[in-house]
Nucleic acid binder design. Structure first.
Lengths: 221, 221
DNA sequence: CGACTCATTGACGTAGCTCAAGGTATGTGG
DNA sequence: CCACATACCTTGAGCTACGTCAATGAGTCG
């Protein structure tokens, strides 16, 4: 039974030889550079060789909500044919140095049709996205900032198999769609309880069990 | 450019002959009957011949959030292999009399692998779900109850190509994850403005243009 | 050292939740 | 056709979690 994941990685590792043989362009991005930008329809697909990118949705007022992170051996944004208005408001931004293989979305789609295994992996990947989004919109929405934050910290620790969440508080707030100040206040309470130790730019989890005790059922493994 | 849709229909109409030939079981459901229930892993796929179902996510505390509606010629929930913990909290319930063809999920998956066109339709369908969920979790979350409600009414009218939303206020509240009382209050304001006329069990939209004026950019066609 | 980003803390206002009481359509059985 | 039960809807009062604003502090880098 799988729990939601914010960081995607390794989902397409087995297809690297196939992808290498298919026509593509080798591209690289510096930290902060955008893989695609606002108002840009989705015409390219990236296979990540190295580095991590963040995809977020930018509202009319400029508020950005982080949706997920893409790590090595992942493909995004996908290969569906329909074009959605909302996709124009998505931004993907390299947060570390990145190397990718870039495909035209139509060619990637044809490749996937010829290779049923690859197509199945695309479906699995979409299913994982749906799972995360249902989790956020149907479950997290009802939780208090405190529970939301604990859920997020727990899931991020599971993603990275460690006890360090290497994101600044503003990033955490953007993932949760809550105010940065309230993230700080919730962390202060958790620090008093001895559950976490906030640092500049990252959060250290001291007591994973007590963190889990704050979490909701859907977030536990 | 497509906007989000809460009601799915006709997406798989062209595959009806293929599906008819594949091994399946003809099933029917009365209004209120559950196609699948809480704590039930997803082992079956339905192709809807007639009627409408509602899928919702049920929280620990019993709060249900409506995710989407499935109408004629749609397939759901899909055919991915991974099993997510969250899926145990999903409930699909017939809201009208329904006739469906039921497939074992594994067999449907094999069928889709043999028929690339069908697999592509599955991908398009997943993409549409992702689009709706991003809309809800990244966009609607920031809006006030008033704007949320107007967005929903507009999109539902587009789904049904009419000016009547045939859902009780409690259903609207469950889609928006807001309180039923606040839906009532927002509708009262819209009634004063002459935009809508609330009835028992449904809402009539009197002035579509002024309704759209309340809506946010992402919700407009 | 100064400039920058990131974090902390407090004061304040308000949107939306909860509770509660009452009103109005719809359906059923006598 | 009326009495009654059952949804569904309306409106108001009170509370609180969270957003906003603002001022200060603390780590990092050139």
């Amino acid at each position: 039974m799988l729990t939601p994941r914010y960081l995607y990685r390794e989902d397409f590792a087995q297809f690297e030889p196939i992808l290498q043989d298919a026509p593509h362009r080798e591209t690289s991005f510096r930290p902060g550079e955008e893989l695609w930008s606002l108002d840009e329809p989705i015409l390219r697909v990236h296979y990540v060789r190295h580095g991590i990118a963040r995809t977020s949705f930018v509202n009319e007022d400029g508020h950005a909500r982080t949706l997920y992170f893409h790590g090595p051996s992942t493909v995004f944004p996908g290969c569906h044919e329909a074009q959605f208005k909302l996709e124009l408001s998505l931004v993907t931004c390299a947060i570390t140095q990145m190397e990718t293989w870039e495909f035209a979305v139509g060619e990637f789609r044809e490749l996937a049709r010829r290779e049923p295994e690859l197509m199945s992996a695309v479906v699995e990947n979409y299913a994982r996205q749906i799972n995360l989004l249902i989790y956020e919109s149907a479950h997290q929405e009802y939780n208090s900032v405190m529970v939301k934050l604990c859920n997020l910290l727990l899931l991020l620790c599971q993603d990275s198999s460690g006890n360090a969440v290497r994101l600044p508080q503003e990033e955490l707030a953007d993932i949760l769609a809550v105010n940065r100040v309230n993230v700080s206040k919730a962390l202060a309470r958790l620090r008093e309880e001895g559950v976490v130790l906030p640092h500049r730019g990252w959060v250290e989890v001291l007591d994973m069990d007590r963190l889990a005790a704050h979490c909701s059922y859907e977030s536990l493994p």
